[in-house]
Structures are given as C-alpha cells and as structure tokens.
C-alpha cells in the first residue's frame, strides 16, 4: 500500500489534487482512498489531504501518520508545518516551489528522505495560463512514486480531461502539456 499526505492551503486545491490522484489510480485498476482532513475551512489556512493506493481492498479508515510520500503544494508551509512528520525513511517529499534547490535543501536540512522539486505553478502559468498547479503536481507525484509510465499517464489523463472538459475542449491540450512537462521537469535535489 502506498500512503500519500498532501499539505496545502485552503483554496489551493490540495483536496482536489488528492481526489484527482485517486481517480487516476482508480483508472489503472487500483483500490484507492482520497480524503481531506477538514479543519477550519478558511482560504489560506494550512490543510491536509490523503491518499491510499493498493492492489487489495483498503479497510483502514484513519488519517495517515507514516506516509510513504508527502506532497507540499505551497513551499511557505515548510517550517510552520512539520510536513515530513512520520515520513517513511525510504519515501520522498515533493515540493511545488520556484526556490533554488539549495534553498529548499537548507529548509529541509533535518530531513533524511529524497527531496523532489517541481515548479508546478510556473508550468501551470505557461501552459494553462493560470496558477492551477494541480495537474502538474499530479504528474510529478506519479513520476516520483513510479505509479505508472509516462505513456500510461498521458493516456489516462487524456481520457479524464476529455470527460472533464467536454464543454471546453480547448483547455485539454494545455493541460496535457502541463502533464508532459511536469513529468519531465520534476527533479531530485
């Protein structure tokens, strides 16, 4: 079972991202859970969302305390929130950030897991034309976890976008471009 914890802020779409990931994994025949931890529902307040992905039915219904992977949607959370709490030593953390790798490394100097960075917001602005980093983050975490190949991801996302954007077909290709770029541009620091 893979367990993933998302850290974001209210309004940034961490919940949506976790549900999207659940969707994508579901489409490959996995058993999935995608759920947010609702706190005070305020724009900008730190929030957490979770994913479990497995080949077997998932029965556990608690939050995730020892995630294999952590995704940080907003790098300003690193510090105020202990984003790496309980993380599997063999796991990894993925951060959406435009900061220099050395700066990120310094921020996470106490962490002994692999650190991946993606500038998902920049990709989103350059492809979709708005700061919707979800699609890019999703592609990046899929690459980091090795959940599926680039080809499978592209096929899967295309199907899902065709359905989701049936009335706005013009946004499908920009989103696909974000998927491809994020898959290629995510890197370990």
């Amino acid at each position: 079972m893979i367990e993933i914890r998302w850290h974001g802020r209210g309004g940034q779409g961490a919940k949506t991202a976790s549900l999207l990931l659940a969707d994508v994994a579901f489409n490959t025949g996995k058993y999935i859970q995608g759920f947010p931890e609702y706190g005070p529902e305020r724009m900008g307040a730190p929030l957490t969302a979770y994913n479990r992905i497995d080949d077997e039915p998932i029965r556990i219904h608690s939050n995730i305390y020892e995630p294999n992977y952590v995704v940080v949607v907003d790098d300003t959370l690193v510090g105020p929130v202990d984003v790496c709490k309980g993380i599997d030593p063999n796991g990894a953390i993925l951060i959406n950030s435009s900061l220099e790798p050395s700066v990120i490394k310094e921020k996470l100097k106490d962490v002994n897991v692999k650190i991946y960075v993606i500038d998902a917001s920049k990709i989103a602005l350059e492809t979709i034309g708005a700061n919707f980093p979800n699609t890019a983050l999703l592609a990046a975490i899929i690459k980091v976890t090795g959940l599926m190949s680039k080809e499978d991801l592209e096929k899967n996302m295309l199907d899902s976008f065709k359905h989701k954007f049936a009335k706005k077909p013009e946004v499908i290709e920009p989103n696909m471009e974000a998927v491809r770029r994020a898959y290629d541009e995510v890197k370990e620091v």
């Binding site: 549900l19 659940a22 969707d23 579901f26 058993y31 999935i32 859970q33 995608g34 759920f35 947010p36 609702y38 039915p57 998932i58 219904h61």
Partner: peptide, 12 residues
C-alpha cells in the same frame, strides 16, 4: 455512516 470519514472519502 460516518461524517467526513465515509461521507467525504472517495473509495472504490
């Protein structure tokens, strides 16, 4: 059934 845990969690 359980609020949020079941109501808001996406599962198979």
């Amino acid at each position: 059934y359980d609020g949020f845990i079941t109501s808001h969690s996406v599962e198979n």
